[in-house]
Every structure is written in C-alpha cells, then in structure tokens.
Amino acid sequence: MDAATVLIQAMNGIQYGLLLFLVASGLTLIFGIMGVINIAHGSFYMIGAYLAWSLMGWVGSFWIGLIVGVTVALLLGLVLEWLFIRFLYDRDHLQQVLVTYGLILIFSELRSMIWGDDVHSVPIPELLSGSIQLTENLAYPIYRLWLSGVCIVIAILMFLGIQHTRLGMMIRAGESDREMTKSLGINIGLVYRFIFALGVSLAAFSGMISAPISSVFPGMGSQVLIVSFVVVVIGGLGSIKGAMIAALLVGLIDTFGKVIHLDIFGVNIFPEMSGMSIFALMALILMLRPQGLFGREH
C-alpha cells in the first residue's frame, strides 16, 4: 500500500470508529448508569436510518429530516423508558435482555409493516456532496469528513456535559450511590429517563447520518449492535472514555483488516479472515483485562 491509500483507509477507519462511538456510548451509558443491558439499542440505529430515508422522501431535505428524526427518537426514548425500561432497573440481566429482545422483535415487525423489507439508499445532501482533493489522484468525500467532525463535536459535548454540568454531576452521583442521590432530593428516575432518551437519540442520529454512506436495510440494527457490544466490552462497561478508544480501535482494525494482504504459511489471514479481527481483539482483551480497557474491577 502506498502512503495515500494508508491515509484514506485511516480516515475511513477513524470515521467508522467515531460513528461506532456514537452508538456504543449510548449503550455503555445506559449500562453503566442504569445497569440495564439494552439489546434493542441497534434497533434505534435502524429506525434512525429508515427515518432518514422516509423523511428525505417526505420533506425533501436531509437537514429538516435530521431535526425531525432526532426529535421523534427523543420522544420514542422517553415513552419507551416510561413504558418498559423503568421497570428493569432492579431486575436481573436476563429479564432485561428478554424485555429488550422483545422490543427488537416489535421494532423489526413495525419496520416491516411501515417501511417494508427492501434495501434503500439515501443520497448525500447536496451541500456536502463534493470531494476534497488530497493528492493528484486521490480525493476524499466531504460528507465523510463532516460526519467525523459531527461525531467529534458530540463526543466533546458529552465529555464536557458529564464532567462540568449539574446534570453530569447527578449522573455520576447516581452511578456511585443511587439511594444517596435520591436522599438529596434528586429525582433520579427523571435523570434516567432523560439518559435513556439521549441514548436512543444518539443511536438514531448515527443511523440517520450513516444512511447516505451505507445502504438502509432490515438487518442493519443487529449488525451495529454486535459491533457496539464489542466496543463496549473492549472499552470497559460503563466507560465513555473506554468506548471512544475502543471504537477507534475497532474502526481502524476492521477497516485495515479488509485492505491488508497477509499470508501466513499459505493461509490468507487478511483480508479473508478480517471479519474475525475485531472479535479476536475482544477475546485478547478479555483474556488480559477482563474488565475492559477502562472498566472498573468488580
């Protein structure tokens, strides 16, 4: 590979990693703060992508679609927390998985009823449709750069929000001692509802902004869910910082795994076996550091 290809692939890897972070951060927040394993998280990503597609056809503007879609996702999150999730905080993980698996089936069926089972594509918004010329014969799409930039801004806002706002203090306090947080007059139930809705919106937003660079298809939720879980496990359950590092690692390894050619004793390790690479990384991390890179020991 020449330097330009490496650069392009590195940018693709980072962009994929940042997108994974947006999805995985919601997952790890909901687990770390509320103790809920939410396997329906990928469904919100899928819903986001389908919303982007249908709103695009409806209102004709990617941007208005984005605003409407995030609002819809936020409301969906608030309602779901109130209807189902709030009953799961004191339950064990098996019950959480069963309820959220039920949600996957419901959303998958609803998607099939509302949007059908076809594969769709969303055009890149005109404003960001060009490319930037990197070298004489290599260009990089502006949309991908914009997407990375948006993810970075959201990540920074999240870090600042958790470290420096009153809501962030409440979130950290609730994580440390739920009873004591309530005893200081803080309505922790309301904080949880907001966090859950925020996680749902982040997942849906990721689905929406990734729609123009990948296709919109029925199984996209479970696909992203599995990779997000790999990210959360590698980074350490509940750690936002860990999710960021792990997402970038996974993004880069997955991307480079598909372009590197490596044969060992005549067996094609890459790219033939690249699909396994991130799981191999997870297995390695689990062996060396079972709590993940930034997870706390239990």
Binding site: M169, R172, A173, S176, D177, E179, M180, T181, S183
Partner: peptide
Amino acid sequence: GRGIFKNL
C-alpha cells in the same frame, strides 16, 4: 457508611 459519591 457516609454515602459519599466517590467519583465526585
């Protein structure tokens, strides 16, 4: 046990 928030 005081109930101090350790991460604050």
